[in-house]
Design a binder for these strands. Structure first.
Lengths: 340, 340
DNA sequence: CTGAAAGCGCTTACAG
DNA sequence: CTGAAAGCGCTTACAG
């Protein structure tokens, strides 16, 4: 079946009459000051010629490191997470790491299942967007010290961990302020019912700002599973109908805004005349919408870079036994278009 | 560092006084008719209790199979490919396979690089969207018979291979017909300059249909790297300006349509009055656009299912030495909205 | 029905 | 500067 049998160190050793040890050192670039220049050259040339690649399973078995990172996204098909995945890819590969992806769908059970699937499977690091209720599993995972754990998009207060997140509180403060500055005085917040840090902080940012202005608070929190459903749209619709005075809406996530925009279109409401709109996260659809929707954009390339570079750094320092927490919080970027 | 050392078969063997062989059979469900019920029970209970998981590197090293599939997408951050990735995920995991992703960006050099990165690294299968000019590498890869190779989204005529693709020719025929039936008589095709099968066939479908109607052909082919750029938009703009009689446009891909819609918006052209529009591939933005854009949607869940199930099937039959080509061609779905 | 043993392809401590 | 050898944790042909 396998036509050309793969070549191993043993084969090279026999062919060149050089010990496996020496070859291993050369392959792993640990030959400096140990092996003579001629031998190195000879081996490297031969490796080049036959296209030898070390067997990674054997390496992993021997070293306990697999050069594999699991990216446990909330949903790999979400534009935000897939953009992050794309950005991380090249940096990971350039450092000899491969990335396995999976999606928790923000469900604790699913996350636990996935974790069990990968936990003992020779994975070096996890980049995780933990769903609600995942604290204990996460804490255990960190405590075990078997893997590097990098938490993304959210974090927990009750224990220390590595994370890369956004300044969500600041983001909605700014967003609320810009709606206010355009003259809106009945500004609503449409968010998600959740204890996850970004969702809570986005709500807080709005509430505090509204408080500063002495305005009335209007808020609708939708359950995660209804964000993209007709049910979710119905909630938004009746929310708007019970509060016809609302003249501005801040959507806490892009998917929420998309559901909201469907409702607004169906009701024939005019943006920005009837309603000023701003959303978290940028997407093509916001720019192409009529009128274009203002957003607080997340700095995807920066987030991705922090995530993967941080993880790789921890992977290195961990084996050197110098462990420090990696915690980054980046600012969102307000992009004003024509929606208020 | 590692707090709780992992348990191995040897540990279980010592603990229970049962040979490693027996334990291996039980773990691999090959114990039936070989090992007594009591021993099986005893071992299984112990495994359950201590949460033993076999070391996958050791398994891979021994068997030569890694239970890993590489998904070499054109671009994992593209909504189409990330949706496919998401759909494949669960089925793969349920069958004990993990998926590593990467993006070729439709560049041959990048694809070759990625291939070299993974080729000898104990990967069982590749699901590939090959870029243009990748035929020879692909052919070699298939000929080597080291991996299962499943080609996605496009195929090559000059050699036989497994693939899952769309009926692109039919798709643009239908699209052209529906533009015609709405009264448009100067229908243009905006596509990509490429020899890749879907791109060629989409163009062919349009040309043949236009020929059937005895209409004049208008076409603009843009290079892959300009699809999302300002340059690409400039091409579209001047194309429309040199042919002001054009009253309908068929866009060959979603990204092309998005660039086109930007141009149309900027020029203040009215859809559907001035221009009827239809695009390949569905996206949120088309539904939310004013007016909503008609599309030929690809059946993402079906494509993904065929892809991963086909790959898993080949992975099984290959080891059983019964090799047949897996070739599927699915129909797109015309979704009529308000854009003509 | 069960077990001893070889070997997959590496890395690395040790010896010289 | 170089090599012999142990061992990572499995699977599987072979023996009984």
């Amino acid at each position: 079946m396998k036509k050309n049998k793969k070549i191993s160190m043993k084969d090279i050793s026999k062919e060149l009459g050089i010990s496996i040890t020496t070859i291993s050192f050369i392959v792993n670039k640990k030959a400096e000051n140990k092996i003579s220049k001629e031998v190195i050259k000879k081996v490297e040339d031969y490796i080049e010629k036959v296209g030898y690649k070390p067997n990674s399973s054997a390496q992993s078995l021997r070293t306990g490191r697999s050069k594999t990172i699991v990216f446990m996204a909330e949903d790999i098909s979400d534009p935000f997470f897939s953009a992050i995945a794309k950005e991380m890819e090249t940096i990971a590969f350039n450092n000899g790491y491969k990335i396995i992806y999976c999606s928790t769908e923000n469900k604790k059970e699913r996350a636990v299942e996935l974790l069990n699937l990968f936990k003992d499977r020779q994975v070096d690091a996890f980049i995780i967007t933990p769903p609600e209720g995942f604290e204990n599993e996460l804490r255990k995972l960190i405590y075990d010290e078997q893997h590097v754990i990098m938490v993304f998009d959210r974090y927990f207060d009750d224990f220390k961990h590595n994370y890369v997140v956004l300044e969500n509180y600041k983001g909605t403060q700014e967003a609320t302020a810009s709606l206010y500055n355009s003259g809106k005085r009945n500004i609503a917040f449409i968010g998600i019912e959740s204890n996850l840090s970004p969702l809570k902080q986005r709500f807080e940012g709005y509430k505090d700002k509204i408080g500063d202005y002495g305005l009335k608070e209007y808020s609708l929190l939708i359950q995660f599973e209804h964000i993209k459903t007709q049910q979710g749209q119905n909630y938004i619709k009746s929310f708007l109908e019970t509060h016809p005075e609302i003249d501005g809406i801040l959507f806490a996530t892009n998917n929420l805004a998309i559901s909201g925009l469907r409702v607004i279109k169906n009701k024939g409401l005019k943006i920005p005349e009837d309603l000023g709109i701003i959303s978290f996260d940028d997407r093509d659809v916001f720019e192409l919408f009529t009128p274009p929707i203002s957003v607080i954009a997340q700095p995807v390339p920066d987030l991705a870079e922090e995530l993967i570079k941080g993880t790789l750094k921890l992977l290195k320092t961990k084996s050197a036994n110098e462990y420090r927490f990696y915690q980054k919080s980046l600012n969102g970027k307000l992009i004003i278009r024509k929606s208020f």
